[in-house]
Design a binder for these strands. Structure first.
Lengths: 168, 168
DNA sequence: TTTTATTTTCAATATTTTTTGAAAGTTTAA
DNA sequence: TTAAACTTTCAAAAAATATTGAAAATAAAA
């Protein structure tokens, strides 16, 4: 396969993959493009290569920077800004885990506390079912929170080495 | 807080939470409703409690059954079908992991193989960046695939006991 | 059988999300 | 300063996704 075709296909695939992961299609495509580019790209480069508007590029690049998946790069002699993506896929995974934990799991944990105490008879069946469900979800979420923290802190070697030996 | 209010809030929260997880809002809300109901509900019950149409309830219940998050229940003397949700949150998590692995990770792995070989000079910088990116993603995905398999097979005790001790 | 209850389907509609592009804003160089 | 290069914003338009509801299909009861 030709490099350019392979790139295009990869960008399309990463785009639809990303949209399952809280990252919109264009954002994931820009990320993919930068992942497989050997040099930093400008907003104009991204516009041209993905055939999308300037506004769209700008918004999604900002979002990628916000997620810390993409960095601005200064190139001496150039007036434009350039952008480059984190290439280490383990780091990428850890960043995504971290961001999603912050955006989803942590708010959920806070919410569960507000809803765990309900009025009325503690032994009423309806009450009990609800309280138990919430408390189990809370336990699970706390567990997940801790585990994810460890994964976020871990480095590749730790993960492959220790965890995987255990899993085999 | 009153039980009914707490339920409503939980259903809303689970709905928006779920939509980050490849499960659409209504599907997640139906799941939430069944999670906190102490007895199986009929399609009419769900329609009334969530104020959504029959078609919508039917489609999303079918999808939940397809994910194996919800079961049909026969109640003797009743003509209608009733529905109940898996209450064990660890099982729920394992089911979701399993389904998403099947729907997302496995297709990605297949795809990566189709794109890993590119024509031309192996030492060309552009070629190298691309091939390395793909091969790193592949390594990572294989790793994730294995790890997720183990998690899917594991039971709660194994997870909390062995894995967590390790993580602490 | 026929009737009635219930479930399923799906075209039309509504809603949500994404994208565009031009105007406003900002930065740098002359 | 002013002008040119570049970035950001955001209302309007387009695209994608979810929902409705009534008709068709199916299943159970009479």
């Amino acid at each position: 396969m030709k490099l350019e075709d392979a790139k295009k296909q990869f960008i399309a695939a990463w785009g639809s993959f990303g949209s399952n992961w809280g990252i919109n299609r264009t954002m994931a495509q820009i990320h993919a493009l930068l992942l497989v580019s050997h040099e930093p790209l400008s907003a104009d480069d991204v516009m041209k290569q993905l055939a999308i508007s300037r506004g769209n590029v700008n918004m999604n690049l900002r979002e990628l920077i916000d997620w810390t998946l993409v960095d601005r790069v200064i190139i001496t002699g150039e007036r434009k800004e350039f952008f480059t993506a984190e290439k280490d896929i383990w780091k990428v995974a850890r960043i995504i885990v971290k961001e999603r934990k912050k955006r989803e799991l942590e708010p959920m944990l806070k919410f569960l506390d507000t809803v765990i105490e309900v009025d009325g008879d503690r032994n009423d069946k309806a009450n009990k079912t609800f309280t138990e469900a919430i408390s189990n979800i809370k336990k699970f979420s706390l567990q997940a929170d801790k585990t994810l923290d460890t994964i976020i802190k871990a480095d590749e070697n730790w993960f492959v080495g220790t965890l995987l030996k255990l899993f085999k």
